[in-house]
Simulated scan of single mutants.
Amino acid sequence: MLRLGFPTVGVADLERAVRFWTSALDLVDSPEWASDHWRTLEHADGSGRALGLMLSESPAERRPRVHLDLVVDTTAEQEAEVARLVELGAEKIDWDDYPPNPDFVVLADPDGNPFCVVDLSRAPSN
């Protein structure tokens, strides 16, 4: 049976990426499949795999078609998490495609991979 696994991010500096993502999302570096080219990050509570990091020589895309959305429940949490992620090494991106009153903030990880921090309290409703 085909199943969806977990997202994988291509990175230029594997050790730096491990430090950033484990700190950013309270994940742990797993020995599963660990190599000079791959790391599996797991949830710290032992509930399973969360993120793959793969050494990549290709540059990060400014507007990737697939990206990570990290979610919080309030605007205050979003502001605090954005500040914490920047302190960990993320960078705010000058995003020229924000809609009016956006519910998300676009950041890039230390390798330049864009991701969003989404405030679910401001997400559009149908």
Rank of each mutant, 00 (worst) to 15 (best):
E87W: 08
V117N: 00
D111Q: 08
A50K: 05
L85I: 10
S56N: 07
N101Q: 14
V71A: 11
P100H: 13
E91L: 10
A123S: 09
F6D: 08
R19T: 11
A90Q: 03
V9I: 15
A108W: 00
R16A: 07
G10T: 06
K92W: 09
V72H: 01
G89A: 01
A83D: 10
V28G: 04
S125L: 14
V28E: 11
S121L: 06
P59Y: 08
R63W: 14
M1H: 11
H43Q: 15
K92T: 15
F104N: 01
R39A: 01
C116A: 06
L14Q: 02
E87M: 11
L51F: 04
S121A: 11
L2K: 11
L70W: 07
T22V: 02
G10H: 04
L41C: 02
Q78D: 02
F6T: 11
G89L: 01
L51E: 00
V106D: 04
V18W: 00
T75E: 15
R63G: 07
A123C: 08
E61R: 14
A76P: 04
L85S: 07
L51A: 03
P110L: 06
W38P: 00
M54F: 08
D13Q: 14
N126K: 10
L68S: 01
V118T: 06
R62N: 12
E79V: 13
P100M: 11
S58P: 08
R19M: 08
S30I: 00
V86I: 14
E42R: 10
C116K: 02
R62V: 13
V118W: 00
A83H: 07
L2W: 09
E32V: 12
L27Y: 01
D96F: 13
V82A: 05
N126C: 10
R84F: 03
Q78H: 06
V11Q: 01
E87I: 11
W21F: 11
T22S: 03
L55T: 04
R49K: 14
D94K: 12
S35Y: 05
G10M: 05
A34D: 10
N113I: 01
M54Y: 07
S47Q: 11
D29P: 03
V82Y: 03
D36C: 09
A34C: 07
D69F: 07
L4Y: 05
S30A: 04
V106G: 02
D111E: 14
C116V: 05
C116H: 02
G46R: 06
R84Q: 04
A24E: 05
L27E: 02
H37M: 15
T74M: 05
V71S: 10
S23K: 06
E57W: 12
M54K: 09
D69G: 10
N101Y: 10
D103E: 09
A80Y: 07
L27K: 00
A12T: 12
L14I: 07
H43C: 13
V118D: 01
S35D: 07
L14T: 02
R3V: 13
R65N: 10
P7Q: 07
G89S: 02
S47N: 11
L55V: 09
E15Q: 14
T40R: 09
G5L: 05
W38F: 15
V82H: 05
P102N: 05
M1Q: 09
P100K: 14
D96P: 10
S47W: 06
S35H: 06
